Amino acid sequence: MDHSTYKKAERGAWLSIGSYILLSGIKISVGLIGKSEALQADGLNNLTDIIASVAVLIGLKIAQKPPDENHRYGHSRAETIASLVAAFIMITVGIQVIMGSVESVLNPSETSPNIMTAFVAFFSAIFMYGIYLYNLKLSKKVNSKSLYSAAQDNRSDALVSIGAMIGIIGAYFGISWLDPAAAFIVGIVICKTAWEIFKDAALDLTDAFEVEKLKEIESTIRSTPGVKLVKDIKARLHGNQPIVDATIFVEPTLTVIEGHQIAENVEERLSQTHQINHSHIHIEPQVN
């Protein structure tokens, strides 16, 4: 990802931060006025989400730093670490939502909230879902995993607001069990999303790589003119950038220049076919 692309991803992170600051203020204020604990809790949830969005923004900032003496491959993995932070915050929120739903069953509230608070929760959910769609589209466009994690967090917050709305309506009409039931389901969805983000980030940090994708890369290398055999091919992700190492065997009678040209052809094909701009091709003579 180049500097301009990182700047585009930063816009998504700033949008999330601004939205959370605005919504948390509105929800907490209206929740206090309308006597809705559900809306207040939703507002407090948005306050914690600011931390996750800031983590994503910091990760994007660090990822832009050029390679240095200690980071010869650059700082792209800062994005992956930001995704991990977002996942931890999301799963914390999810567990809190689940525990809150159990608490609501054990200690049901007798206070009837103002129906106005349900409308605030509903419009907050619509607004945050729009932020989710924007960040999701942007994350795919710029290929940013940390922004994708932020988008999933946006969607989780929209679901939390829907759960709050259902709970408020249930309490308003005397159907108290709707609140904990909706909250419990929403909590499960948030935890599931957080787990998927954590799993993907952990796989990237441990240099895992999709097997089918690696086979496609190997096929591209093998079909390059002059390549007789491909051995010891490996790939890993550095942030959103794939890095490939491979050993190719060529005719032993070729000159150094001819062998080097074949390696360059392999690298060019990897760049054009798979958008792999970091590859290390080692040449060996094929001896029968």
Results as ranks from 00 to 15, higher is better:
4 S>T: 14
8 K>P: 03
11 R>F: 09
15 L>H: 09
22 L>P: 10
24 S>K: 04
30 V>P: 03
32 L>V: 13
33 I>R: 11
37 E>P: 11
38 A>Q: 10
46 N>Y: 02
48 T>P: 13
51 I>D: 09
52 A>D: 10
56 V>H: 05
56 V>R: 12
57 L>S: 01
59 G>W: 04
59 G>D: 13
68 D>L: 00
69 E>V: 11
84 L>H: 00
85 V>Q: 04
85 V>E: 06
91 I>E: 09
99 M>H: 12
100 G>E: 10
101 S>L: 14
105 V>W: 11
106 L>E: 13
106 L>C: 12
109 S>M: 09
120 V>L: 03
122 F>P: 02
123 F>T: 07
126 I>Q: 00
130 G>D: 09
138 L>S: 11
143 N>Q: 14
147 L>Y: 00
152 Q>Y: 14
152 Q>W: 15
153 D>L: 05
153 D>P: 04
156 S>Q: 09
157 D>E: 09
159 L>G: 05
160 V>G: 07
161 S>L: 10
161 S>T: 13
161 S>K: 06
164 A>D: 06
164 A>F: 06
164 A>M: 09
165 M>D: 10
169 I>D: 12
174 G>T: 13
180 P>W: 10
192 K>A: 06
192 K>G: 00
195 W>Y: 15
200 D>R: 12
201 A>H: 01
201 A>Q: 01
202 A>E: 08
202 A>Y: 13
202 A>D: 10
203 L>M: 14
205 L>F: 04
215 K>R: 13
215 K>E: 05
217 I>S: 01
218 E>M: 04
226 G>C: 06
227 V>T: 02
228 K>D: 04
228 K>Y: 02
233 I>G: 05
237 L>M: 15
239 G>N: 10
240 N>W: 01
244 V>C: 07
249 F>E: 15
249 F>W: 10
250 V>I: 11
253 T>Q: 08
256 V>F: 06
256 V>D: 04
258 E>K: 07
264 E>P: 07
265 N>E: 10
272 Q>N: 13
279 S>G: 02
284 E>K: 15
286 Q>L: 14
